[in-house]
Simulated scan of single mutants.
Amino acid sequence: MADPHIRSKMDKIDYLTVIIYRLGFTFCFPVIALLPWQAELPFVTVDLIEKLVFVCAIMCASSLHIYMKSFRLLLQMATWVGLICVLLGYPEIGLGGAFITLGGLCYKEYFCFKIPGLPFQPVILVALWFSLQFNIELTSIILSSVASLLFLVVSIAKWRMPLHFDIGDKTKYEV
């Protein structure tokens, strides 16, 4: 988490990771919105949208700027464990790992932006995961719409602030 009043010197890696992190949120908007519809889309192969959810989660997890090492590793590990589940043939469980990362990051971003509904994003994503697993179509459509709208709002808020806000005070990071 950043201290916006502190402007640490940023290198190219800092700029790159902040942009990758923000793009991960931005891409979540259309990807999460399409999750319930992936079977009906003619241009989409089976599970393509779920793979794109992982791309978004990996973009965010690989570029976290959170001071506390334990939280940073927890959010990163959820995506990596989820990816291992997918590789072992359990994509339905793996998607939950990506949702843990994305939901946790939305919860973190609430403290920066105070966007109404954002602290509930982890719960919305858990409910979306369950509705997708049990093929509850209407619930999946509603939850994916709400979740994707929240991703859109948070990504707009992220892109409106200067890049150095994501970095904060480099001396506070636990390595």
Rank of each mutant, 00 (worst) to 15 (best):
L73G: 00
P91F: 08
K108H: 13
S63F: 08
I66N: 05
T139A: 15
M1T: 11
L132P: 02
S140H: 02
K51G: 12
G89M: 10
S140A: 12
L88P: 00
S131V: 07
F54N: 01
K114H: 15
L87N: 01
V18W: 09
C56Y: 05
F54T: 02
L95Y: 04
F99Y: 14
I93D: 00
I84H: 01
F54H: 04
I13R: 14
W129G: 04
E92Q: 13
T171I: 07
S145R: 03
D14I: 10
L75V: 02
D14W: 08
L105E: 14
I136L: 15
Q133N: 13
L102I: 09
I141R: 06
K108C: 00
L73A: 12
C85F: 15
F113I: 02
T79G: 04
F54P: 03
S131C: 11
L35S: 07
F130M: 12
G103Y: 09
S131M: 05
I32W: 05
I124N: 03
Y90M: 11
Q76I: 13
K9V: 14
K170C: 05
I20L: 15
W129I: 07
L74Y: 13
L41E: 02
P119D: 04
A33L: 15
Y107M: 12
I20M: 15
V44Q: 03
P42Q: 01
F54Q: 04
P36F: 02
Y21Q: 08
S70C: 05
P91A: 05
L132C: 03
A2G: 15
K114N: 11
G103H: 10
T45L: 11
G96V: 09
E92A: 12
V55E: 00
P119H: 08
F120G: 09
A33Q: 01
I84W: 08
F111H: 14
G24A: 07
L74W: 11
L83F: 15
W129Q: 09
A127I: 03
I136T: 05
V18Q: 06
V175W: 12
V46R: 14
F165C: 09
I6A: 01
L16W: 09
I115P: 03
I136E: 03
P162S: 05
F43D: 01
G24P: 06
G117V: 10
S62A: 15
L95N: 02
T171R: 15
Y15K: 13
D14R: 10
I142A: 12
R72H: 09
V86A: 06
W159M: 07
R160T: 04
A127G: 00
S140R: 06
W37E: 04
R160E: 04
V123P: 00
A127D: 00
P30H: 08
Y67R: 11
V153T: 10
V53Q: 02
F134H: 10
E109D: 15
G24S: 05
W159F: 14
T45C: 06
M77T: 12
A2P: 12
S148T: 05
F71Y: 14
Y67M: 09
I84S: 05
L150E: 06
M59P: 02
F54L: 05
E174F: 06
T171C: 00
E40K: 12
C28K: 06
V55H: 01
L125Q: 07
V86K: 11
L95E: 04
